[in-house]
Design a protein around this nucleic acid. Structure first.
Lengths: 167, 167
DNA sequence: GACCAGTGCTTCGAACTCGAAGCACTGCGG
DNA sequence: CCGCAGTGCTTCGAGTTCGAAGCACTGGTC
């Protein structure tokens, strides 16, 4: 019989396993560094990074949750912690009363600036040391389309809430 | 001044972010499928997979924890769940009374066989659909050395326990 | 203007995670 | 043989995660 539409061959299986392992190991190393350098979790760091990059230093909650691939309730929890630590503020969104706009504070930007060098050092040493400049480019060229492909698929977290039976 | 030893250029930053996003999105999609197909978490699935692949269907606890990049205490917890579900057994290791050998049961193998097709379908669709066969090969060629490089670095989980002040 | 499905965020409870501390055993030095 | 640092796993407590349910508001229809 013919192969199923998306069968996974041994090479792909190896790539898949390596991807999972690499991201796990990398994440673990990063968490160590962030904890020591600024008492931040990786999720918190990612939130601050996204805000730091954003126009006005602001984003909506849902936007952030999607960007860092985290549940909405989990983001609410972490936003609470970050707000308590004075690293972000939460204000009602001007154009939509339901929405909450999260904004990074000066203290938040300062903390990012403080931990970023060590962060980059870890990423450089763990992830890019065995890769040439060309390799890095190739890796980026491979992963960006995959990311876009995954993002294009309807995210489960945004699935419509079912009221009755779905079928 | 010269660049620091492991500075991260914009291309690398993009690759790094894409890697984190891709692994997060992939993991999320996989968790959905595993939950629906066999009421397994991704960690549990990985444990069973590693055991299924292993000689005799057996591995030591520490080996497993390292392989799937999970804390030892977390693995103890999950091993408890899997044992209760009849998917693995835990026995004292013959050559080292301290050690615990984990073995997959027939039920465990059956469960893996049951969820694997759907799992591969998800991985194929999410991760490999936008990649040619050649791309997949390239991705594997890039990630495997990175994995080996990360593994070569002393894993934090295996760091010697400090008894007094470290320095 | 009143309805009402849809959306944005938070609350809630249960489950899972981690590191530190603890216990049991190993294997080397004397 | 005994002591003792080192290792393998589990226990423990605190913190974090998720999805489901709940609340508040929006934007369409009539």
């Amino acid at each position: 019989m013919p192969d199923p539409p998306h069968a996974v061959d041994p090479v792909q299986l190896g790539a898949y396993f390596a991807l999972i392992e690499v991201s796990g190991l990398l994440r673990h190393a990063i968490e160590q560094q962030l904890r020591e350098a600024g008492d931040l979790t990786f999720v918190q760091f990612q939130v601050l990074m996204r805000l730091d990059q954003a126009a006005e230093g602001s984003r909506r909650m849902t936007e952030l949750a999607d960007a860092i691939v985290h549940s909405r309730s989990g983001l609410t929890y972490q936003a609470g912690r970050l707000e308590k630590a004075g690293l972000i503020t939460r204000t009602p969104s001007p154009d939509d009363e339901r929405g909450v706009t999260v904004t990074i504070t000066d203290a938040g930007r300062a903390l990012i600036a403080r931990v970023l060098p060590g962060h980059e050092e870890v990423v450089g040493r763990m992830l890019f040391e065995p890769l040439s400049r060309e390799d890095s480019q190739k890796l980026s060229d491979l992963l960006l389309p995959v990311r876009d492909h995954m993002r294009a698929a309807p995210p489960r977290s945004a699935a419509p809430r079912r009221r009755g039976a779905p079928g």
